[in-house]
Design a protein around this nucleic acid. Structure first.
Lengths: 260, 260
DNA sequence: CTAGAAATTAACCCGTTGGATAAATACTGT
DNA sequence: ACAGTATTTATCCAACGGGTTAATTTCTAG
């Protein structure tokens, strides 16, 4: 007997009968192990990829199965129909970001530093999790039809609004901030500045004729966002928060050479 | 002879033969008018609706035909296959916004007023054209695959970057603005603040448990955005640009009653 | 050891959907 | 009038894709 590992998933073991006498029947006997938990995980991972890459309607159940190294039937067995699968992925995505959000403590940073930290986290979380952005866009295209049915997500409140509220209060008290801005608006604004740039980087890159995801472009963007928000909150000049002058490549960028 | 108007489109006229002798053959003779230009328009309009409502993969060619009051064959005759139709819609959408953008002259407004005007335009354009937001999201989900092939869109530069550049320069010279911010970054930031809020209003409304598209919510948002950007540019306090304190409903909003 | 439950594979079903073909009808210039 | 072309209608179809049914294999409790 010889054991051959299936290329992608070590849990599947093919057993080949050596010198089989009855080729027609026992030409190749496949064996497999049970691993419901692992299977479910791989299915959800593959589904996340698929849905974020193609949207809900564009996603293909067969592709999810294939990428999960599973039989299509497994999706229905472990999770449910396509819509259920999608919702499970969405809920998982929200759960994940909520967990990471909670790990961020802004309480004992001085207010401007706390806001900077918040922007930095949001920015990098989005960069590290592009699927999250895609999923949100897909869900909004569906007018949050699925999210509305999810009591699970509705109960997972972001801790950021309250964090921001206390940070802003402290900032105003300490004199660092000049205005008691609405925490919900600020939260949305910070998310907006990060989200839009990354989520729309593909079309924006075409329009501007340059790569918005290069290291320099990303660094420049982060600096701009931090300066914008902190300047508004503190009443200081944007220039006070790092380099923010128009860099050298601006003039060229406005007239991309290739166009027409 | 009797003329009966087809319910949806007046250009189609049904002619019924009165007292027809041969019922089998001439039971109902349909007549129609030619209107290639109008037909093309209706097709593109219907396609815009369909693609923005369902995305590229979710869009149904048959539905587009039906909503255009056309035979499915007409889509292929006048525009092309599904992908061509989609690209035509996308190009049309960009063309439309570019036209309106050009009609906005910021040249002879004083700089802060010009920026406010810019934000106001962007905000209201997005509100008036939700399909545009949806189309952009769809195209970004496809990583701008179609846009890249469109020389047409690439050649349609937004006049806003240059407008902002001159406005910022004037603002710095006049002393209204305290920083020579990069016009591309500012353009993206303004778009971001407006776009994200509206594009993601469905999921955000669920998360926050209230309607972000109500008149009050929209007004509040616009005021916040203007204050944020102008405060950063002018170095004045956000409070100087209209009411921006946390309104009365904030506390309730953080704890939506229905959750759980 | 063994029976029954849990997990997985294999094969099939059938409505949908993008796209194509062919025929019919309206318009235009001469 | 009429011929030829532009526009529109009416059918058809093959591939796809979500979902299901049934059989097969592994695991576990007793």
């Amino acid at each position: 007997m010889r054991f051959i590992l299936k290329p992608r998933f070590a849990c599947y073991i093919r057993t080949r009968i050596h010198r089989a006498t009855d080729l027609a029947k026992a030409k190749r006997i496949l064996k497999w192990q049970r691993d419901p938990a692992g299977m479910r995980l791989r299915i959800l991972q593959a589904a996340k990829q698929e849905f974020s890459a193609h949207g809900l309607a564009g996603a293909r159940v067969d592709r999810i199965a294939a990428n999960a190294g599973a039989n299509k039937r497994m999706l229905y067995y472990h999770v449910g129909k396509k819509d259920d699968l999608y919702l499970a992925v969405l809920e998982g995505a929200y759960e994940q970001i909520r967990v990471e959000e909670r790990s961020l403590d802004l309480e004992h940073l001085d207010p401007p530093k706390a806001i900077e930290r918040l922007i930095d986290f949001t920015w990098n979380y989005f960069i590290r999790n592009p699927e999250f952005l895609a999923l949100l866009n897909t869900e909004n295209l569906a007018r949050a039809r699925h999210l509305k049915r999810s009591t699970k997500v509705k109960s997972m409140h972001s801790p950021f609004v309250e964090m921001i509220r206390t940070v802003v209060r402290r900032g105003v008290e300490s004199g660092d901030f000049v205005v008691a801005v609405d925490p919900v608006q600020l939260y949305i604004s910070i998310a907006a500045l990060c989200f839009f740039y990354l989520s729309n980087s593909a079309t924006l890159s075409v329009i501007f004729g340059r790569d918005l995801l290069s290291k320099e472009a990303r660094d420049e963007r982060l600096a701009h966002m931090v300066a914008l928000v902190l300047a508004a909150l503190t009443g200081k000049s944007m220039a006070a928060f790092g380099r923010n002058k128009a860099p050298r490549l601006r003039a060229a960028a406005a007239q991309p050479v290739e166009a027409k």
